[in-house]
Amino acid sequence: MMKQLLICLALFGFVNAAFAEELMTFRSELNQVRYQSLIKELRCPKCQNQNLADSNSGISVDLRQQVHNMIETGKTDQEIVDYMVARYGTFVLYRPQNTPATFLLWYGPFILLSGGVVLFVVVLTKNRRRSCK
């Protein structure tokens, strides 16, 4: 029973790995790692919330192929990302760029957090003063 379960689980892992994956050959292990991380960070422009690695839409297949080609022809990661942004906009980035437009996105949580800390300290000191009286 246990053994069968383990086999099932192992096969399930195999199915997952095979999902949305074309047969691709890479010139080096490093290139393959770069490919995997790039298609995880780039968003499918057709889908609302999937990265290139998870999507099977036609455009994702094409873009994965494009990423593969660019890696194999010696383009840097930055060049590949710039290429995608030039065509599909910053929408394709799962990690937003640090620009004035995304200031609140990056620093908003910290601003809110420091506001909360200030409020906390104010309330605390007020209460202490009251209890001292």
């Binding site: 422009p45 057709k46 839409s57 455009i59 094409d62 873009l63 494009q66 065509r87 599909y88």
Partner: peptide, 12 residues
């Protein structure tokens, strides 16, 4: 091959 589509940012 969809290369021009890619350059135009076409998604479908």
């Amino acid at each position: 091959l969809g290369q021009f589509g890619l350059d135009m940012g076409v998604t479908g």
